[in-house]
Nucleic acid binder design. Structure first.
Ligand SMILES: [Mn+2]
Ligand SMILES: [Mn+2]
Ligand SMILES: [Zn+2]
Ligand SMILES: [Zn+2]
Lengths: 151, 151
DNA sequence: CAGAAAGTTGATAATCTTTCTAATTAAGTG
DNA sequence: CACTTAATTAGAAAGATTATCAACTTTCTG
């Protein structure tokens, strides 16, 4: 049961004077078909599409990911060093946050209704229109704590 | 009343087999003398030091910012497109979060004890050693909502 | 006080991301 | 279905960040 259909994406884009292109539709579909807890980098998406016979240039992929994040359709995450990851920005019962080990990048997702409420309330109080709120917890996982490596 | 002195930084570095260098001490000092609500990019820091007659190479600056973020001394923030910002990672009464307009990058800091508690509790439950937790709210500010520009 | 071992720096190369531009394409109009 | 207009794309260039490596510094050993 996808949140966005091609039609609703088109409507939202046109509202701002933008256009629905095959590239944008394809990229949205990839994220809607993505398994829970999966996150894609720009390169992941690029090669995933290549394997399916679709060619979308890397610059279009980067541009589209940014655009959809700014629209509130995708979330941009810093899960690992060196590159960003993206996932669908889903509403309440699916909305979640991330706990990340700064050493090995192991990541755990968790939900919190109170945080979502604080986020909404804070945005509202300042007159901001909320797109997404994400708690990022940086920490050291049990394994890395035990590790003797100084890194 | 700085949290870290040169001595305590040295102690924490040595504990992991690392060393306190003049460059690291200088960079820590810059952040400790930074006004509340200020955030620095790697380039900001680079040119700020140049103006004070200190030369630290950009690669050392990037390396040190990463190191201190992984140690929990600094926080790495995505406040604007294209580059990261850093600030001191301060404990409870100073600990705060960020509300950001995705269009104009206007940013508001706010505090929340409940979020800090949820963050600590979540890390603890999973056996993670907490370094930092930051709520990032992406939204559209009142001015940009009124703006007719489609961007 | 040598000499060895390990960490750090600065310069450079590699990688990731954003910006720029000419050619193309979606959307609106008659 | 032309035709106009403005947004979008692909590719190249520029910018930001990370990785690599030789020279240097600090710490440890004998
Ligand atoms: Mn997730
Ligand atoms: Mn701040
Ligand atoms: Zn770990
Ligand atoms: Zn704004």
């Amino acid at each position: 049961m996808p949140i966005y259909t091609a039609a609703s994406l088109k409507a939202e884009l046109n509202e701002k004077g933008w256009r629905l292109t095959p590239q944008r539709e394809t990229i949205l579909q990839v994220f809607q078909n993505l398994a829970e807890g999966k996150h894609l980098s720009a390169e992941d998406l690029y090669y995933m599409l290549q394997n399916e016979g679709e060619h979308i240039s890397l610059s279009t992929i980067y541009r589209t990911l940014k655009l959809m994040a700014r629209m509130g359709i995708l979330r941009e995450l810093e899960l690992a060093e060196g590159h960003k990851h993206y996932e669908l920005n889903q509403p309440y019962p699916y909305h979640h946050h991330h706990l990340i080990c700064v050493r090995c990048n192991k990541m755990i997702e968790f939900k919190s209704e109170p945080i979502l409420k604080i986020g909404s309330k804070t945005a509202q109080k300042e007159g901001y229109h909320l797109l997404d709120c994400q708690l990022t917890i940086h920490a050291v996982c049990p394994t890395c704590q035990r590790s003797l490596l100084p890194a």
